[in-house]
Simulated scan of single mutants.
Amino acid sequence: MKIRANGIDIEVEDSAQMDASFASKPAVLLIMGLGMQLIAWPPEMVDALEKAGYRVVRFDNRDVGLSSHFDALGKPNLLWASLKYKLGLVPAAPYSLADMAADALGVLDALKIDQAHVVGVSMGGMIAQRVALAAPARTLSLTSIMSTSGARGLPQAAPEVVRALISRPAGSGTDAVVAHSVRLFQTIGSPGYPTPETELHTRVRASVQRAFHPVGTARQMLAVVADITRAALLSRITAPTLVVHGKADPLVPLACGEDTARRIPGAQLLTIDGMGHDLPPEPVRQILAALIPHLKATA
């Protein structure tokens, strides 16, 4: 369903849509990563949270999926922004991660949810950190998965990952876009738990057919690069925090998750062998084994 939040249209899926009894249950707000849509959350993860007694709210971040796009803000020059960042300068972004955190809080407002457990992956973890900083009274708990503090000096993505990220599809058709995305997900995926190629093709095709807006992803990426103050603020987070990271993550190396956990007072750190930058079934099972007790402990 489409809702109006923080002045923009945001596509939302809410457990209470399908079953009104969920409206009275504690909410878990799931925030997806760079360029990814709400359908990227594994169904088994959503189901497990619902069976544990939680109202699950997912949404498309601004500029991707079925939420508002910001094409009037122009196409960013990521190469120039990357060069400025390496020189110690802050590139100008069309919007910030703080703006995206305000979107997330706007979703809660629109659904009349006062407080929620906030769970984010990758860029979504960064946004979740911003939510916990902006609205501590509304954040029952924080879970940051395969994300980072954004501190300068942390290890960067492996060279082959950078090449995959900056490469372009061989054509503009759906088949070319799907093939390109599959190669990227295989590059950043979990070496210990590779997703079968047929399954990955099916999943990527469904995402591309639902919505494909790469310039929005580029603007999101610029918001990530420009968010240079978050690391110094993480010590202010008061929400009980769980940090989860794969030991084999080639996009956001393990040290980034470890740094996040060090900076947030009392944060627990779960590291998973063989997990890369995706959510295959076995890592999801291990995440849930830690996540659900984490949520229940902060009820």
Rank of each mutant, 00 (worst) to 15 (best):
T148E: 03
S96I: 06
L87P: 04
A81N: 07
L108N: 07
V119W: 04
V177W: 07
L154I: 02
R138V: 02
G173H: 14
P76S: 01
V121D: 04
P169E: 10
Q156F: 03
G88K: 05
L133Y: 04
K84P: 01
L89M: 14
L87F: 11
D109E: 14
S167T: 11
L105E: 14
A72S: 13
D71F: 00
A102P: 06
P155C: 00
G74K: 01
P159M: 04
M123E: 06
I127C: 00
A164W: 00
P159C: 03
H69L: 02
Q156C: 04
V177D: 11
M126Q: 13
S144N: 12
A92I: 11
K86R: 14
V118R: 05
A81S: 10
A176R: 10
P94R: 00
A157D: 12
A72G: 00
S122P: 06
I145Y: 01
G120Y: 07
L83P: 00
M126F: 06
P136E: 07
K75N: 13
P91E: 03
I166Q: 12
L108K: 08
V119E: 05
M126N: 09
A92C: 10
D99C: 04
T143P: 10
P136S: 05
S122M: 01
A128P: 07
Q129P: 11
G153R: 03
G171C: 07
Y95L: 00
S82E: 14
G120V: 07
T139M: 02
V161F: 01
T143S: 15
K86V: 09
A128R: 06
M146L: 13
A134Y: 05
G125L: 06
A101P: 09
P94I: 01
P136R: 03
V162F: 11
G124H: 10
A157Q: 14
V161W: 04
A132C: 09
I127Y: 02
S172R: 14
S82D: 13
S172D: 15
M146H: 07
K84T: 00
R130P: 05
G106D: 05
R168G: 08
A116C: 03
L111H: 12
P155D: 09
Q156G: 15
D99M: 13
R130N: 15
D103W: 07
V118F: 10
L154M: 11
V161Q: 03
Q129D: 11
L142E: 10
A101F: 05
V162W: 10
Q156P: 03
Y95E: 02
K112E: 15
L78T: 12
D114F: 02
L97E: 05
G120T: 12
S96D: 05
A128D: 08
Q115G: 04
R163Q: 14
D109W: 05
T139K: 01
H117M: 02
T139Y: 06
A164F: 00
F70M: 15
M126K: 10
Y95Q: 03
G120D: 04
L165F: 13
